[in-house]
């Protein structure tokens, strides 16, 4: 594996990408769904890590009454939910209607356009690195719910297929995009096996994910306002991703954590942290924007951010 870490030089802490009012509405609708699908803690004991298979897992936190466990071996975090419930959540009409509305799409596009530009560059750059060309691939895009982003990807593909989730995916492609989707998979190994079957030999998987080993996730635990059931069921760690991809036959080419919102998330929720978390309280009270930005850069560079992305290759004959 190419051992690389990636970071960006920012002038200050990045802004959240979500529109506040839409985000709080999504959050409410998710909580409403969760109230109807309670998971009792007693029924969720002895959960195995869905990434590395270890049975050494501990209760990490509970969010909206749903328990989340942490794997002692690979540090992945997961909720012991049934896949059918997560699938039902994804198809929950109030949420799907909101997300497909024109207003939601428009605001998302405005806030995310720059990020999508950067992501498209990343796809092209890494494709050039591993394929020797930066355009004209068959691309299977799984779970991308943003119309504008889909059009941007389509523009450099030779054949573009977008599906709403992994269950719907049945087209083979040279490149599979699986961006912020693993969080909906209760059995990531099975998900990676299916993705493997959809990639042509020597083809590439581009994956991005919120990761459980990231700074804000491990620091905030239940005080987080960005992780919630069943939007987030599986938060693999960097190590968990590595183990599960290799287990399913992928060659992991590179993994980085270029996320830039960890410090913002923690600082915005600092009052919710226990009083004895003195270092972060001190940091919050005594650090200016430049120090916090430098701290975020260190987190990015050290693969400690809670947003990771990777490129993996399906081993096999030439495309």
């Amino acid at each position: 594996m190419l051992k690389a870490y990636s970071f960006t030089e920012n002038e200050g802490l990045s802004q959240r990408l979500n529109d506040k009012s839409f985000f709080s509405l999504e959050r409410q609708l998710a909580a409403e769904f969760v109230r109807q699908h309670h998971i009792s803690l007693s029924a969720a004991k002895n959960e195995k890590c869905p990434l590395c298979g270890s049975d050494e897992t501990d209760l990490f936190t509970a969010i909206d009454t749903i328990p989340f466990f942490r794997c002692d071996r690979c540090w992945s975090i997961f909720a012991p939910a049934e896949q059918s419930i997560v699938d039902e959540y994804r198809a929950y009409t109030p949420i799907t209607a909101l997300r497909s509305s024109d207003e939601y799409q428009e605001i998302a596009s405005v806030k995310r356009l720059k990020m999508w530009d950067e992501l498209v560059f990343w796809f092209k750059f890494r494709s050039a690195r591993y394929f020797g060309k930066s355009a004209n691939f068959s691309i299977l895009d799984i779970g991308n719910r943003y119309n504008v982003f889909r059009e941007m990807i389509k523009s450099f593909s030779s054949e573009y297929t977008a599906v709403s989730d992994l269950v719907q995916a049945n087209t083979e492609a040279e490149i599979v995009l699986f961006l912020t989707q693993i969080q909906y998979e209760t059995n990531p190994i099975q998900a990676f096996e299916k993705i493997y079957s959809l990639i042509k030999p020597n083809g590439l998987l581009f994956l991005s994910a919120r990761v459980g080993s990231g700074f804000d996730v491990l620091t905030l635990k239940g005080a987080t306002d960005t992780i919630y059931p069943f939007e987030h069921t599986t938060l693999p760690s960097i190590k968990g991703l590595q183990i599960s991809l290799e287990k399913t036959g992928f060659e992991l080419l590179e993994i980085t954590s270029p996320g830039n919102l960890d410090i913002r998330y923690v600082m915005e929720n600092i009052e919710k942290l226990p009083d004895d978390n003195l270092f972060l309280k001190y940091l919050s009270k005594n650090s200016d924007e430049s120090i916090l930005t430098e701290f975020q850069r260190f987190i990015q560079k050290s693969n400690l951010s809670s947003h990771a992305r990777l490129v993996a290759r399906k081993k096999g004959d030439t495309v």
């Binding site: 190419l2 051992k3 690389a4 870490y5 990636s6 970071f7 960006t8 030089e9 920012n10 002038e11 720059k114 950067e118 980085t256 270029p258 560079k301």
Partner: peptide, 18 residues
Amino acid sequence: IKDGKLGNPLEHTLCFDS
């Protein structure tokens, strides 16, 4: 100036430890 400041575009860095 899409990145917000003239003369200071968003930089991406890749580091290698092997």
